[in-house]
Amino acid sequence: MVSGRVLTGFGARLLAGRGVPPANARYVAESAVLNEAAGVTTHGVVQFFYFDKQVGPVIDPSAEPKLVLDRSAVALVDGNGSFAQLAMRLAARIAAGKARRFGIGLVCVRNTSWLAGLGVKLLPLVRQGFFAELWAGSAFKYVAPFGGCEARLGTNPIAFGFPVPGRPPVICDFSTSTVARGRAGLMIHAGDRAPEKIFLDGRGRATDNSAVLEAGGSIMLLGGEHYGYKGFGLSLWVEALGLMAGNRYEPGRELRESFALMLINPAAFGEADFYSKEVNRFVEIIKGGRRRPGVKEIRLPGERSFRSLARSEGLGIFLSGETLARLNDLAARNGLKPISLKS
């Protein structure tokens, strides 16, 4: 186990060594570590390896996102070569202000880097009482359109959340493909096959073999071979939001990620007391239903991450031996103190 404080300090020193201002370095590192603590290991401290390659050559360490349009309930932010995490921080601040004033706030962000792990980024906003949606367009295309066999779409994740007063909020976070690229990458590395056919080879044949992604294959859309038209629609929506914000469709080009954040203020509808009682009653009915054989509980989206966050807070964050070794190799190459396990 390693404490979140140690991992955040490690990431902050890595980024500061690349010229990132200390406050920004710590904020970006905290974002990565929070994903790891929440159990989203495909989008957690692996970001440090991404930063090792990207900061300087691609991401401008000193750049800040810029507000380029501010009009009533909407705004547009340009990433300006900066970290997506900084653009998200700015977008969240703007959207929250607009939602408080107008009842709703929509901020689109263009020309940014990998945002990595959407759900935990909504958590502080939902805890403030907002309904929240986040749609992120991926510059790198690993997903074939429904009926096609060539990758033309990103995994294009989406997340949304809503408060449940007196309980943890509901936070959903998933790709519009059957599996995230990071998860598929772990399968390739381990030589694992998927539990069902969720990939297409280069000729469009369904397979459970993740290795086809390295030979011209692609990931199926959410819904799979027969119902992937559902994921297709969601993925197209994400891509269109990026186009609306002026983010050019240029597959594989760095800093061509985009995202859109929308916040709704439920107080604008004047039914706060009713909502608080009814959403709690609703959750109790959902969780209290009969379960399938072998299922211990009906778990709402986000519950697993909240439990992981609580464990990480008390016991530290679990890192595999391989991840720890990679981090310490990164430390050696960057003149940083190695990470040691928590006793």
Rank of each mutant, 00 (worst) to 15 (best):
M244W: 06
K141H: 12
A12V: 14
K141D: 06
R5C: 02
N80S: 08
R26L: 13
S113T: 15
A99Q: 00
T8V: 02
R89T: 06
T8H: 10
R256S: 04
M88F: 14
R110H: 03
R89I: 04
G302I: 10
G335M: 00
I339T: 03
L263W: 08
R299A: 10
K342G: 00
G321K: 05
E214R: 11
A310K: 06
L34Q: 13
L34I: 11
L125F: 02
N247V: 06
P266G: 02
R304K: 10
E36V: 09
A267K: 15
S276G: 10
S276F: 05
F318Q: 02
R127C: 14
L15V: 09
A63Q: 08
K98C: 07
F282R: 14
R326A: 15
F102M: 09
E30A: 10
G166Q: 15
A91T: 00
L76R: 00
D201S: 06
S138A: 06
A99H: 02
A75K: 13
L90W: 07
G154S: 09
L34D: 12
K342L: 10
F51Q: 11
G302S: 10
V45C: 06
G39Y: 04
Y249L: 14
G191R: 09
L255H: 08
A272V: 05
S138H: 04
R205M: 07
L263R: 05
A99D: 10
P157A: 15
G137E: 05
T42I: 06
P145L: 12
L300H: 07
T207Y: 08
R253T: 00
R326M: 15
I264E: 15
F49E: 14
I285K: 15
V120P: 12
R291E: 09
D52T: 09
S82C: 14
F199R: 02
E30N: 03
K197A: 03
A87C: 05
G191N: 12
A75E: 13
N247P: 00
E133R: 14
G223I: 00
G4Q: 01
R5Y: 01
L7M: 08
R167L: 10
L86M: 12
R299D: 07
E64M: 12
M1R: 00
A92T: 01
G19Y: 03
E239A: 15
V212T: 15
M262W: 04
F10Q: 12
D201L: 11
A87D: 10
G79L: 00
